[in-house]
């Protein structure tokens, strides 16, 4: 695929061919392409109006209270059918998504919304994971910082000899070629 095989290449030619990979502009070009694609993919279709898509998007956010663990989009229960009809009629009246969801929440309580609230006690379900993850990342960063400060433990000369000997033995076992300077890039 990319000609990375260490045994068959000589270091110099490879280095030249791969020099491109170390240039920042090559990577910037990639980022640019991805950026343009992402911008181009932004969906501009309106979120108002009557459409199957919109009805589906709304009904997956509503819980079918008559059934067990199903959304209004999935269920065929009479209540779910009635909800879907109501969504249709409200879409025709030009209501926004938030207004339609609020309509159901006002009548059936918070429970009917599958999205937990963004205020009050219920908001904790959004906040707690973020806090826990942030704390975890900070903790890990702290541990790394401490390790770096204490980076005292170094390999002793004895360790180095041991490792070098072992590597030499290994390569003798494995390589039919005489051990020459190997390409560091493997």
């Amino acid at each position: 695929m990319n000609g990375d095989d260490p045994a068959s290449r000589q270091g110099n030619g490879r280095r030249q061919r791969h020099a491109l990979r170390q240039h920042w502009w090559a990577w910037a070009a990639m980022a640019l392409v991805v950026g343009v694609v992402l911008v181009a993919s932004i969906d501009t279709s309106p979120s108002r109006g009557v459409s199957e898509q919109r009805r589906y998007a709304l009904s997956v956010q509503l819980k079918c209270l008559q059934c067990v663990g199903e959304s209004v989009a999935a269920s065929q229960a009479p209540l779910a059918v009635q909800f879907r009809e109501e969504i249709d009629s409200q879409m025709r009246q030009g209501r926004t998504d938030d207004e339609i969801l609020a309509f159901f929440a006002q009548r059936y309580g918070q429970e009917v919304l599958l999205t937990p609230p963004s205020s009050g006690l219920g908001a904790l379900v959004w906040v707690v994971p973020v806090v826990v993850v942030a704390a975890g990342v900070l903790g890990l960063a702290g541990v790394f910082a401490r390790w770096r400060r204490e980076a005292g433990a170094r390999a002793s000369e004895e360790d180095r000899t041991l490792v070098a000997g072992e590597l030499a033995r290994r390569h003798q076992d494995r390589d039919p070629e005489p051990a020459g300077p190997r390409d560091p890039d493997g």
Partner: peptide, 30 residues
């Protein structure tokens, strides 16, 4: 973090109901 989010989302309605008796749902959008 993934496991924590999934576990919290699963039992959160129970927690809220135990604390203040409110009923809410945590579903696919979350």
């Amino acid at each position: 973090a993934f496991a924590f989010v999934v576990l919290l989302g699963t039992v959160f309605p129970l927690i809220v109901e135990a604390v203040n008796g409110e009923r809410l749902s945590v579903g696919v959008p979350f």
